[in-house]
Computed example of a mutant assay.
Amino acid sequence: MTPSEAAQLLGHCAAFDNRTVGKVDARAWSAALHDVPFDEDAVAAVAAFYGTPPKDPSQKLWIQPHNVRTLRTKIRNARLENFQYEPLPDESVGEYLARYRGQVQAIASGRIAAPTGRLALEGGPTRQFVAELEARGWEGNREVPDEDDEPAAELIETVRRTGPLGVVCPMCAAEIGFPCKSNYATKKHPLGKPLSKPHTARIRAASGEPQQTPEQRAAEEERIRAASARALARIEADENIPDADIVEEAS
């Protein structure tokens, strides 16, 4: 962009922001946009800048050279959105590069109308390929049953999350997806405090292990109480160690 062309572009800017344009301004913009031609896209970039409201309504729009460069590139790239190069048979690398750059330049500049639609993939897998997939257990072509054939409620019943929270707890009756709770009610948790770990019975139920009988649970509780009593006795014995007697040696 030459200084005279930059002056013309600044004239378009002045129509929006009432700036004063001088020779120094034209030379400065020409230096900043030395590789950007003065064309319709550059003028459209100015219009796009001032046609977009600022984020702050009280802010005054004031275009800069980098705004012209950025918006002009966006305008040209928008025309290339659906562009796809169509090669010629047996073309060399040099021919490909020349034709590709020529098509991109023509469409980006607007001299050739931009493609209006995306190219769609056509065709599908061969019968042999589908047969091989089905032989390996693929069911991609199965029909989805209607709601009348398999009610949604039945489908929901078949969905289970993994882990202990995927079953109802046999100890505290915590529902699926909810943590186990203690048997002690508090002011904050009147129905029982949530536990960080699920009950052993719930873990056993989730893994498919058989549940303990009442006799087995009573024996397990008795074993735990006995172990606690032994531990308490050891602690009390350690606390009641008598002081050592000091024996004075005869002189």
Rank of each mutant, 00 (worst) to 15 (best):
V130Q: 10
A113V: 13
P170L: 11
E139N: 13
Q128C: 00
A152D: 12
T158D: 15
A185P: 01
A47N: 08
N82G: 07
A174R: 04
E150W: 10
F16D: 04
A131C: 02
T20I: 11
P89F: 04
R234V: 07
G117N: 11
E5L: 08
V104Y: 04
A206F: 08
E239M: 05
L232H: 08
G124S: 13
I203C: 10
E143Y: 07
E222A: 15
G94M: 02
I224M: 13
I107K: 08
T158G: 13
T73D: 08
Q8G: 06
T162W: 03
R217P: 00
Q128L: 07
A229E: 11
L195Q: 13
P194Y: 00
A135I: 04
Y50N: 00
A173P: 00
R230N: 01
I156V: 15
C172T: 05
A47G: 01
P53N: 05
P179F: 05
P89R: 07
F178Q: 13
P57L: 07
K55H: 11
A42M: 07
E221W: 01
K74H: 11
A152V: 15
T20Q: 13
G123M: 05
G192E: 06
E236D: 13
P125K: 05
I156Y: 14
P87A: 08
D146H: 13
D148F: 10
V24G: 02
M1N: 02
A201D: 13
L232F: 01
P115S: 02
A6W: 01
D149T: 13
N183W: 11
R202V: 09
E150T: 14
T162D: 13
P54I: 03
A6E: 00
V168D: 09
D238E: 14
K187G: 08
P115I: 00
V68A: 03
A131M: 03
P151L: 10
V159F: 14
G117C: 10
G51E: 14
A185K: 07
Y100L: 12
V68G: 02
K60H: 14
D41F: 01
G124Y: 12
I241L: 14
I176S: 02
M171I: 14
S207M: 14
L195S: 07
C169Q: 10
P54E: 03
P210F: 05
K197W: 04
V168I: 15
A44L: 11
E150K: 09
R127Q: 09
T116G: 12
L155C: 14
S4W: 00
H34I: 12
E239R: 14
P214Q: 02
H189M: 01
A6D: 04
P210E: 12
V130A: 03
A231Y: 06
H34V: 09
L133C: 12
E249N: 05
H66L: 15
R27M: 08
A226Q: 09
N77V: 02
E239C: 06
N18R: 12
